[in-house]
């Protein structure tokens, strides 16, 4: 094998093309599923089921991570703020970072792990066992039947889970600050309320909605185009998690730059 420098560029070019294809595929999946939202039939039951799966069933893991995130964050910031005698900033800084960044991003990542991979695996299995073909032969639009409810319920449920995350996180930090670090509880609350703006929370929720769309669209896209049996399904699930997680972090950067 001789070394051909041009091969590097060919490789990069090929990867880049694949990336663009992937992006195009994901985006068109999103547009299709969003468009089909307004076309009958409307299947409420499917939406509810997905809402239960994405929202209700994720609430425990979100509450758990939220509580610990809040507690750890309060503990860590307390070290720094104590140096400056600025303990009163612990509450606000925890609340602000939860509302603006940690809430939506961590919720997004948790839900990606739980829901995004599950969607990819489920649709992937349906794909390789011809269930999607079966749907199609029953003159049912598989995108509308499978993807639209998943995307919509994720867009709705992610902000809701983020509210839970923010709330429990602040409670966790309150617990840490008041019971373990000995700060005054009322001060903690009033400082927090003073520093946090509604805008911070709502923008965080907006971010969460975008993340919800990313998680569902990527998961469904990867599953819907899964190939080659069980292995293909596993690969789809893994890729869905990787792509969603990275996309969430990238999107977070741009959303932060854009919205704040």
């Amino acid at each position: 094998m001789t070394f051909r420098p041009i091969a590097i560029f060919e490789y990069i070019g090929a990867r880049f093309t694949t990336l663009l294809e992937e992006l195009g595929g994901i985006f068109s999946t999103f547009l299709q599923s969003a468009g089909l939202l307004f076309v009958p039939p409307f299947r409420m039951r499917l939406f509810l089921k997905q809402m239960e799966f994405v929202g209700v069933e994720s609430s425990f893991i979100v509450l758990l991570t939220g509580a610990f995130t809040g507690m750890v964050f309060a503990l860590q910031t307390s070290y720094a703020f104590r140096l400056f005698g600025a303990e009163n900033l612990i509450g606000p800084s925890v609340a602000l970072s939860l509302a603006r960044e940690l809430g939506p991003v961590l919720t997004g990542l948790m839900v990606t792990g739980r829901v995004g991979s599950a969607m990819a695996a489920e649709l992937g299995t349906m794909k390789v066992t011809e269930q999607i073909d079966a749907l199609y032969t029953m003159s049912i639009n598989p995108v509308q039947y499978l993807i639209t409810p998943r995307v919509l319920s994720s867009i709705i449920m992610l902000p809701m889970l983020t509210i839970l995350f923010d709330f429990i996180g602040i409670i966790g930090s309150y617990f840490m600050a008041v019971f373990l670090l000995g700060l005054n509880g009322n001060r903690f609350i009033s400082d927090t309320i003073y520093m946090v703006d509604l805008k911070d929370i709502y923008i965080g929720l907006l971010k969460a909605a975008v993340f919800g769309a990313i998680i569902a669209v990527v998961g469904c896209y990867k599953g819907y185009f899964a190939e080659k049996g069980a292995e293909g399904v596993g690969k789809a699930a893994t890729q869905a998690v990787v792509i969603s997680s990275v996309s969430i972090l990238i999107a977070d950067y741009f959303l932060t730059a854009l919205l704040f």
């Binding site: 809402m51 239960e52 209700v56 509210i163 946090v196």
Partner: peptide
């Protein structure tokens, strides 16, 4: 039922959001 579970979840979360909103906008 699924409906009830989703309903309870959404109601709780919206209540929280309402409460937070109210607190912050004091």
């Amino acid at each position: 039922s699924t409906n009830a579970r989703v309903g309870i979840f959404v109601a709780v979360v919206l209540l929280l959001l309402f409460w937070i909103t109210f607190k912050i906008s004091s």
